[in-house]
Design a protein around this nucleic acid. Structure first.
Length: 496
DNA sequence: CGAATTTGACCGGCGC
DNA sequence: GCGCCGGTCAAATTCG
């Protein structure tokens, strides 16, 4: 049966050729040839004799009207023969006009699809912008929520401590002395590591005074009031203001090797001052955010005295405006740091960081990248991205670590840092009480590698990675020792 | 020419 | 109270 249509086609083709010749005799001959085709012959011998009865019989059976398939094929062939003799030209015109119509229809369809595609692209673009805006808003709201929850908790703890203190006054002196001592240790280390920023001071009175005079602080209070005041204890407005001032003054300090005069963090900055800081031959530059009028965020940039390849960038405040995707991570960082620091510094009446804070936030951290200090003039998180990832015991502060910190390009650095803190904040706020565990070391490595690659290729991608890294931290086994793998985000316990 | 940067002056906090 | 220091302001200067 396989040869049947092929043979038919062959003959149909022959018919066409003969139609063009308009040769009736030839047609007759071809008809004979059709009749002569022996579809069941193994030889496929077209030259078989017309006198071959067996062959004719078989062909008749095939052309039997009851055999629809064969009959249809034959009829088609005949139609073609007839059409070619008569209105050939009109048929061609009809076909061409149909083709033209089809072409027009298809062209119109393509244009319509293209238009639709353009529209979808525009819509997609708008949605992207909306998403960015929403993401930024979401982050800010998240930070506020975390802050509120922690302040509420801290207030409870604070009340308990105050109640306890009123019973034993002598201990408060010891506690103050202890706090001061801790501060001196912090300051010494910070100072020795190039910076004279953090002097031995207690932050609370200064911040309170600062709040009275600092327009930025009042601005911040205004910005946060609608959410905070009604929920939190209104009678304690002074404490609330102090907390907000602390939030305003909480800082994130980043130490990183960079040849650039400033790291690119996605924001726009305007330099408003430069000073020679004591103990450092390198001047300190002061910048303020110019992305929106009245944005309270400031940053200081200074080179390390001991190693001038190290750039120290200190961020302060929370942005009061929507941020571009590239800047969201860093902005979240300062807010997160403020939240963490507020939580730590307000955890006791003396402003000592709660020893368990970072242990709770980063249960599997074990190294030396970040220093958290509430004893400085302003509570500060110092992220040191210049140390070796396996250097675990350099100081006694609470720390967490980002693997392979060295050699980040100036453009990549802030995103990495920001992401770390951003996720830290997410974890601290939203997953604080969650049990951790279940994620494998392999997943850590793979996702960290993905993070590196993505950051390297597209700084804006960090925002999208936030959730992924957050899940990494959140799912890490508590006692996972990742020190041997520099790509792993580690965490440490707090040493007092 | 407007925007950004520089730089000296000024202010407030803190220690002595 | 004085001096030191960090931080900010604002006029002068530079840059694009």
């Amino acid at each position: 049966m396989l040869t049947f249509p092929m043979n038919l086609m062959t003959n149909w083709s022959d018919d066409n050729e003969n139609d063009n010749d308009n040769d009736g005799d030839q047609r007759r001959i071809n008809r004979v040839i059709v009749d002569e085709v022996d579809f069941f012959s193994d030889r496929n011998d077209k030259s078989s004799s017309p006198d071959d009865d067996v062959s004719m019989k078989i062909n008749h059976e095939i052309y039997d009207p009851h055999c629809n398939l064969a009959a249809d094929h034959v009829n088609t062939g005949l139609q073609l023969l007839i059409s070619n003799t008569g209105s050939d030209q009109s048929m061609v015109e009809d076909v061409s006009s149909i083709n033209a119509e089809e072409k027009r229809a298809k062209t119109a369809q393509v244009e319509q699809l293209q238009e639709e595609l353009r529209f979808k692209n525009e819509e997609n673009q708008k949605l992207k912008e909306m998403l960015n805006t929403m993401r930024s808003s979401h982050t800010n709201l998240q930070m506020r929520y975390v802050s509120l929850m922690q302040q509420k908790q801290n207030q409870t703890e604070h009340d308990q401590v105050v109640r306890g203190k009123s019973e034993e006054k002598g201990d408060s002196v010891v506690a103050r002395k202890f706090t001061s001592g801790t501060a001196e240790v912090d300051d010494q280390q910070v100072s020795n590591s190039c910076n004279s920023d953090e002097k031995t001071q207690t932050s609370t009175p200064q911040n309170k005074r600062k709040l009275e005079t600092d327009p930025d602080s009042s601005e911040l209070v205004q910005a946060w009031d609608p959410i905070k005041r009604p929920i939190l204890n209104p009678p304690n407005a002074a404490d609330q203001s102090a907390a907000e001032a602390t939030m305003r003054k909480a800082r994130v300090s980043v130490r990183a090797r960079s040849e650039a005069h400033m790291i690119n963090d996605g924001c726009q900055w305007r330099k408003y001052g430069q000073k020679m800081a004591k103990g450092n031959p390198c001047p300190r530059a002061y910048y303020r955010c110019t992305m929106a009028m009245g944005c309270p965020v400031r940053k200081q940039v200074q080179r390390c005295a001991e190693d001038r390849t190290i750039l120290i960038t200190t961020y302060e405040g929370t942005h009061s405006h929507p941020l571009p995707p590239a800047a969201v991570a860093m902005a979240s960082t300062t807010a997160a740091a403020a939240t963490v620091l507020l939580s730590g510094s307000m955890s006791s009446a003396d402003g000592v960081i709660n020893p368990n804070i970072l242990a709770r936030i980063l249960p599997n951290c074990s190294s030396s990248m970040a220093t958290l200090s509430a004893s400085a003039p302003f509570p500060t998180v110092t992220l040191d991205l210049t140390r070796d990832a396996t250097d675990n015991n350099q100081n006694s502060h609470s720390q967490f670590q980002l693997g392979q910190p060295q050699n980040f390009g100036s453009g990549q650095l802030p995103q990495v840092i920001a992401q770390a803190l951003y996720n830290t904040s997410k974890f601290s706020g939203l997953q604080l009480s969650q049990d951790v565990g279940g994620s494998s070391q392999l997943n850590h490595t793979q996702q960290a590698s993905s993070l590196s690659a993505a950051i390297t290729s597209d700084p804006n991608f960090t925002a999208a990675l936030a959730a992924a890294i957050s899940s990494i931290i959140g799912a890490s086994p508590p006692n996972n020792n990742n020190n041997n793998n520099p790509n792993i985000i580690n965490s440490t316990t707090y040493n007092q």
